[in-house]
Simulated scan of single mutants.
Amino acid sequence: MTVRIHWSLPLDSGQQSASGGFDAGVVDVDTMISFAREAEEAGVDSLLMPMSCYMPDPIPLLAALLRETRRVRFILAYRPGLMSPTLLTQVINTLACMGQSRVDLNLVAGISPQEQAYYGDFLEHDDRYRRADEFLGIMQALWASREPVTFHGQHYQIEAATLGLRHPGDGRPYIYVSGASAPAKALAEERADCWLCYGDLPAKVGVHAAPLLQAGKEVGLRLHVIARETREQALDAIAEMMARPDEKHRAFIKDFVSRCDSEAVKGSFRLAEQYPDHWPSPYLWTGAVPYRGGPAIAIVGSYQEVADYIREYERHGIRNFIFSGWPSRDEMRHFCGGVMPLLQKEAVHA
């Protein structure tokens, strides 16, 4: 299989419905461990550990999950501005030593001034990316050399930083950078291994991905998926998930997005509004976006149709896919049992 399949590990209730609210305020570590072990057995490459104010902090949970798994990797989503780059490097080195280097980093500059303010962060959009560039530059310098690191920038002042605990093998994590704006793409080209974006039509994604691919970077998509044995069953699943929409939650999301300055988030809503029937293509569905936000753009269809659509993205150079579902564990079972064997079979015969 030439594509890599990742899954978002639910840190909240697992989002049982495509049109429901968030069930926050619960930490169920045993369920997360069970989910991670099942994903590992199913052949999922990595599990995304998302971060948001309505979720538990991912770092202590990641430490627990590393001790309970053996192969699956973890992608830690984190934001500059919450801790110093030296400290986050130290945290990742510690986690990597605990888990056989199975920790990667998804650096997210932030999507909402409102939420950033919760943490005492009031930088404007482009300044957040300039800070992220300094942040990643310091981290990469700490990973690249045993010499003390000194940095004098606009956002960080670091003097002779050294870490006694190195990343295993003097390596570093694989780095993802998310975002659709020009500063996000520039940061990904300069500092990342993979640029992540939300779903869109394959040809459109290919246009945006081309400069990054030409620069030698990988490109990945953050999506949901609804895959069943037949297309009719997948459409029935959508009807069931949207049967009892939480309009109060939809209003909350609308207000939240109105305050966002993320081009990725705004772009996903523009895509949803552009197609009032919710179908930009026969296999791409946006109906849950007003309730769940940008990642809710979903590939929908039979197992074979979903596999074929993933291959369409792959033809445009996309090789990383971070999926979710409603409920996420059930959808992972459908995908890994029905779609993944087709992707593996097609790769063998390619």
Rank of each mutant, 00 (worst) to 15 (best):
H208K: 13
D170N: 14
D23W: 00
Y283P: 00
A24Q: 15
D104N: 14
P202V: 06
Y176C: 02
S145V: 03
R67P: 00
M1R: 09
D277P: 05
R191G: 01
I75P: 02
V27N: 04
G293N: 01
S302N: 13
I226S: 08
L47T: 12
A141M: 13
Q344M: 11
D261P: 10
L66Y: 08
A42R: 13
C260E: 09
A36L: 03
Q15G: 02
G267D: 10
A96C: 11
E134S: 04
G325W: 07
G25N: 09
H167C: 10
Y174G: 03
L343N: 01
S328A: 15
D170K: 07
I253C: 01
P295V: 03
A264L: 02
E273H: 13
L235T: 09
L284C: 04
A203C: 02
A117V: 04
A210W: 04
G199M: 10
P202K: 12
A186P: 01
E134G: 05
E218C: 04
K266S: 14
S8M: 13
L65W: 04
R244G: 08
Q214T: 12
D255P: 00
S258P: 07
C336Y: 08
C194D: 06
E40W: 01
G325N: 06
L235K: 10
I226M: 14
N320T: 12
S46Y: 12
Y54Q: 11
L221I: 14
M340R: 12
R166P: 10
P202H: 06
W279L: 10
R67L: 15
L105D: 03
I226G: 03
Q274D: 11
P173I: 07
R4V: 09
L105N: 05
Q116C: 10
T31D: 14
V26D: 13
D104M: 11
Q157A: 14
G43A: 12
E134Y: 02
F323L: 15
F122E: 00
A288H: 02
L201F: 00
I33S: 11
L223T: 02
V289A: 04
R228T: 00
D308H: 12
P202E: 01
L47E: 07
M32F: 07
A141E: 11
F256R: 10
D170H: 15
D57K: 08
G267P: 03
A239P: 11
M242A: 14
Q157I: 12
S19R: 04
I33G: 02
V26M: 12
V306K: 10
L61F: 01
M32K: 12
W195Y: 01
E346C: 07
A180K: 00
A24P: 05
A141L: 12
P327E: 04
D126R: 09
E273A: 15
H152D: 11
V265T: 15
L136C: 08
E40R: 06
A234E: 03
L105S: 05
D193F: 00
T162K: 04
Y309M: 07
V27W: 05
S328H: 11
I59W: 07
R37Y: 05
S281N: 08
V27H: 00
D104K: 03
A132R: 06
A203H: 14
